[in-house]
Each structure stands twice: as structure tokens, then as C-alpha cells.
Design a protein around this nucleic acid. Sequence first.
DNA 1: ATGAAAGCGCTAACAA
DNA 2: TTGTTAGCGCTTTCAT
Lengths: 339, 339
Amino acid sequence: MKPYNKVTSHEVAALAGVSRSAVSRTFTPGASVSVKTREKVENAARKLGYRPNALARSLIVRSTRMIGLVMAEWQNPFYTRMLRQFSERFQAEGYQLLLLTSASDAGVDDAVRRLLQYQVDGLLIVSAKPSEAMAEECERAGTPVVLINRHSPVIRASSVTCDNAQIGRDIFAMLQSAGYRRVALVLGDPGVLTGIERNAAINEAAAAGKDIRVVAEISGCLGYEAGRQAVIDMWKAAERPDAIVCSSDPTALGILDGARLDLKLAVPEELAVVGLGDIPQSSWGAYRLTTVHLPVDEMINLAVEDLLAHLEDPQLEPRPMTARARLVHRDSVRVRPEA
Amino acid sequence: MKPYNKVTSHEVAALAGVSRSAVSRTFTPGASVSVKTREKVENAARKLGYRPNALARSLIVRSTRMIGLVMAEWQNPFYTRMLRQFSERFQAEGYQLLLLTSASDAGVDDAVRRLLQYQVDGLLIVSAKPSEAMAEECERAGTPVVLINRHSPVIRASSVTCDNAQIGRDIFAMLQSAGYRRVALVLGDPGVLTGIERNAAINEAAAAGKDIRVVAEISGCLGYEAGRQAVIDMWKAAERPDAIVCSSDPTALGILDGARLDLKLAVPEELAVVGLGDIPQSSWGAYRLTTVHLPVDEMINLAVEDLLAHLEDPQLEPRPMTARARLVHRDSVRVRPEA
DNA sequence: ATGAAAGCGCTAACAA
DNA sequence: TTGTTAGCGCTTTCAT
């Protein structure tokens, strides 16, 4: 047992010559205390450096004002931005974030279990999803859950995703009308929905179209270095692509450098490169990557508003939400067929 | 009051036909319970979906296994990396992070106060420092504090910094021996120690040396776009620098693009650019920025080990720690004077 | 408006 | 090994 030095409401009450209830009331906004007692308590509290124990309080009021946040993806700067915004938004509403990291879907249940033990009021899960059993536990515990970049029909939880299939079709249309013929699909983490759904849509569109097809599909290629190497490898293959669609911007930038610097290719004339995420660097002068701008702010807004609403009204039904991504045309894809 | 649905040790005890203490003991590693009771309890617990309330527990054991983390800087990817690593490391030790954001030093006290109310076992403050009064409160509360990238002689808290002055001298020596003569210093957030100390050291070295001097010092220039604009502005000034030392990599990359793309300057022949941070992009082929590699991992290790040690032994004295940064020579500074 | 008493869910000392 | 008892620091009826 540690030496204990924190002052309690008891001591404040003693010094102020009032009851513990009076102390409690002065620190409860909107409770009825006379100005006289309030002053006495506030003075005593200041003198002793008293600060109510939020945890003891939570035991009684059945709300910790803590939100559990599980992060399963850190690669993409995109997620950092989310983390920051979540923190700021909830902080402004008087909540704090209890942060846990999970390697993948596999670790999510452990993280959620831990957060549940800490009695979080709500749960935000970024880029991963809990098992059905765990989701049910959350529901039984009355803890609302919002899934970011994941969704599941069998799980009763709100979700925020973006319409990846539509974006896939948009990309395909763009490449087709610019006269590209041989598309390669590069996937990062094979578990991340965004890339998968988008690639599926492109495959489907390619199957329907003619003159243009998917000539390669690689997976597990994530980050600048991996991208740079991947394009070099592709050029050793029998059939070289003339367009590469990539499920993360850093990877796409690596491909861009690999193509230009290592392979001495002209982009976008000989090769088109499309990214995903629209990270700041993609707009930088040396790159000017054509990519997909993920509606981060909109997604964050949806998630925050939904969770807050569920916190207010526990009866509310969870709902799936979709934000609209946007194709950003820059210089790594040509606009019309070559002369 | 919300509808309440969480199962307590009481119900488990009832179903298992034992006392609440027996339940507590089965969930306390290393307590003495017979296998028979343990089994009965575990069965009952599973049946009811019981999970001990970590907060009620913390009230008794006087430890929440929560670490408060205050983040005051998010611009630099460097800090994201820290956040992630802190989360993973402490999670592995059975701690969780309670995350708060603070705009600047001004907001830190509020954040710390809040975290103290949540009875965090320890406090990590990144790139900001609390007031002396608040630091004293932490001490009185017996909550160890580790400051990252800040230190203060008047505050009793551990701190992890890197030897910015030494790095400043190294940079100066590099520029001098390569024959650069007119140095410009670009500062981001004027409150961040790293840049300030480094610039001070460069100024000092310049005052002592001859033939080479500091021709400009600008402040509040943070991020790619700001950097790109800043170099354009500099070229309109009476005296143009031939070397720019920058206190953040993204800014340096903006300067690089501004110099090459907008001003059509030859780097490193006509202009040297030095960054700070060594973010991944700095090593990318299109940039190859000469910069300072901050010893992030070492800093994280020092911080984690120190905090863990203080958590173990509250009597331990706080201590200042310094990690050694390293100059990374790439292609944005020439090695020897031009012929 | 105020205080006394009860109790949130848990663990720890003590007896048995 | 087990149950009983007390109490962590707080809020909330319920009388007054």
C-alpha cells in the first residue's frame, strides 16, 4: 500500500465546518448550496488543494466521461489526424479518451474487454472490428460503439465508412477515358476494407469494359520503400502495367519515385499512378499525385455526433453512415489519350 | 440515472454460492483460492458475463493503472510515433493511456488537473510544461511526471530532451567547412525548445567565427506550404542566404521545393537546406534532405523506463535525461567548398 | 439549505 | 482457505 496523501471531501468538510454533502454539492454544478457555505467550502478546498476524485464519483453517477478508443492502424497519417480530432472534440465536451492499440482485428477484443472494465461511456474503434460476441457484450453493458472504416451487418454498432466502390468506379472511368489499358492494383494491409472494396469495384468494372484490364494485383505492399521496390519488380514481369492504383498515398509516392528515378519512366505519359488518402505530401511540388481525398473531417464529425447522441440517449439505434470521398486530379494521371 | 445492467461480484458470488471475497480472490492473481471455488466462480462469472470493475478496484488498491498523456504538439509526425509507442509500451505493462490535448503551455495545467482528478498513476507531458504550482500539486499527489522535449530547473519532474546545442554546433561546423557564408534560421512554433536552443547555439558559433554569419532569422514558419512561401519571400530581401537551417522537416521540404521549383535554384550548390526530425519523406528520392535525426526511440525508452521506475518506487528522485541527436548527411548540403 | 445515513463495486484485515 | 466486516471517496435520498 502506497503512502497516501490526497485530500478527501471529508477533510475539506472538517476544515470548512460543514458536512461532506455540502462539499459534494459545491462541486456539483446546479446543486442547491447557499453562497455562505459555498464560500467556506471553496476556501477550505483551495487551502488544502482539494480536487474531487472523478473515479469515486463515477461509481455513483454511473458515468466515467471516458471514451475508449482502439487504434488498429497507425501507418497512414490520416489516422493521426483522426486521433487528434477525436481527442479535441471529446475533450471539449468534457470527455477524455482512454487509448488502446491493437495490432489487428485479433487484438481488438482484448482491448475492448479492457476498456469495458474501465467502464468507458462509449467506444470508438478505428480500422478494426470486434468479434460478434464482444459486440454483444458491449450492447449488454449499454456501451455504444462506433466503428470507423469498418462495418459489419451482424454487429449492432454504428459505423462510418466511405463509399469505396463508387471511388473505384470513378478511378476506373478516369483511367479508361485517358486511354490507359493495363491496370495494376496494389494493396497495403490486405485486411483494410477501403482498399479491398475499391479494388473489387475496379475489377468488376474491368470485367465489364473492354480494351482495358487488370494485369496484376499485389498485396501486402505498404509504405514508401515497399512501393518503390514494387514498381521495380513489376517492370521485370512479363506484362507491364501502364497504370498503377495504390491503396495508400505513401506507397503511391514510392511508386512514383521508383518509376521516375529508378526506371526513368515518364509519368503520367508512360505510367499513371493513383493514390489513396491525399496526405499533405501528395500535393507537394515534387509529386503532385492524383489521388483520392478521404473525407476525414466529415467522417470524424459523423462519428463524434453519433457517439454523443448515443451517450445522450441510450435507446437510440446504431446506424451505418457513409461519407463521400473525392477524386483529386493532379499530375500523375494524364487527362486524355496520347496523340 | 441510466438503466443499469452490469453484473457485480455480488451476483457472481450468489450464483456460485460463495462470498464476494472469494470472487475477488479468483480474479486477483496470486491470491489463495482452492481450485474448487475458483472453478465455481469462473463458471458463474462466465455465465453472467462478469468483468471486475477496474475503477472500483482502483479506489481500494490506490492505483488506476492509467497513465495521463498530454500532447501539445501534433504537427510533426515525430510525435505521432511517440504516441503510438507510448501506447504500446505501457499497454504491454498493463497500463492504459488517458489522452488529453493541449494547445500550448497555457492549456497544460487544465489538462493535468483533469488527469489528476482521474487519479492517473503517472504523467507524460509531450512538448509542453506545467506551471510550477501544478508541478507541485503533482508531487504532493505522489504522481511522477516525465517531460518530453522540455525541461525546467524549477520543476521537480524527470525530463527527456536531446542535446540541441551540440547539434547546432555540428550544423554550423558542417556549413562552415562546406564554405557557406550567409545562414538563415527558420523557426516553427517559437515556443518549442528544440529549435530555440539549436538556433541559439548557431548564433553563438556564428558570433565567434568569421566569414560566416546569420543573415536572417524568421519565426512562426511551420509546415510545407509556409516553407515554400518563406524561401520565395527571402529571395526578395536585400541579402539572400546561401544556407537555410530549419526547425522542422516538413518546412525544410517546402523550402527545398520552393528553391528548386519556384526559384530554379541549384541545391546544394547555390543553397543549402537543413531540416530537423528526419521524417520518412526526407529520405525519399525526390528530396534527400540533409537533416537531424532525432533519437525518438531512445527518448521513448528513457521516458518509459523512467516512469516505470518511479511507479515502482515513489521515493525515486526525478532526473533530467538527454538523448544524442545525429546529423544525417544527404544531398541538400554540399560537402566541400565549390571549386 | 443542510446533515445523517446508505450504498456504488470492490479489496483487505481479521477471525474462524 | 474462507466468510465477515470495514471502508476506499463520493453522491444521493430523506428528514429536518
